[in-house]
């Protein structure tokens, strides 16, 4: 991979407007039946305006945004050899129905480990210009044996 790309920031992704359906489908897909994901009345009883998204829901938008950057020829990254090794989310506020989520992807680090490259992407998930959650994804790009 091209280490000169460390620090490079990609333009914001197209907005995904969060709906109750998207949250429900994701919660069902991870097998989590917490009523805060499904029932607005319960969510409101915990002080939320709408149903909330599960903690790993932001991956829906961060992975799509990162995949666009993987196709950047300047990055010189072979996506067919990528393994997702680490993920972190730091939450600023809950994701709510109606949030138009956009993601700014930053190449935070690229380093060699043996024959592999380890790339860390920071994904800043914003709504209405304000940070909602930051993600960090560490990807191992396997080199030649």
């Amino acid at each position: 991979m091209n280490r000169e790309m460390i620090g490079h920031q990609y333009p914001a992704s197209d907005a995904l407007v969060v709906t109750e359906e998207i949250i429900r489908d994701f919660a069902l897909a991870i097998g989590d039946d917490n009523p805060i994901y499904f029932d607005q009345t319960v969510a409101q009883s915990f002080g939320h305006a709408t149903v909330c998204a599960p903690p790993t829901f932001p991956i829906v938008v961060t992975m799509a945004a990162m995949e666009k950057s993987f196709n950047d020829p300047a990055l010189n990254m072979d996506f067919t050899r990528v393994v997702h090794s680490d993920q972190r989310f730091e939450y600023v506020r809950p994701i709510a129905v109606g949030d138009p989520l956009v993601v700014i992807t930053v190449v935070e680090d690229i380093r060699a480990l043996g024959n592999n490259d380890i790339a860390t992407f920071r994904t800043e998930v914003m709504a209405h210009g304000e940070l909602v959650v930051t993600g960090w994804s560490k990807l191992v790009v396997r080199g030649d044996e």
Binding site: I36, P55, R88, P94
Partner: peptide
């Protein structure tokens, strides 16, 4: 999240 009831009590979460 089952334990705390409100999943938004999680402010940071990371795994390898």
């Amino acid at each position: 999240t089952d334990w705390v009831a409100d999943p938004t009590a999680v402010v940071d979460y990371s795994v390898r």
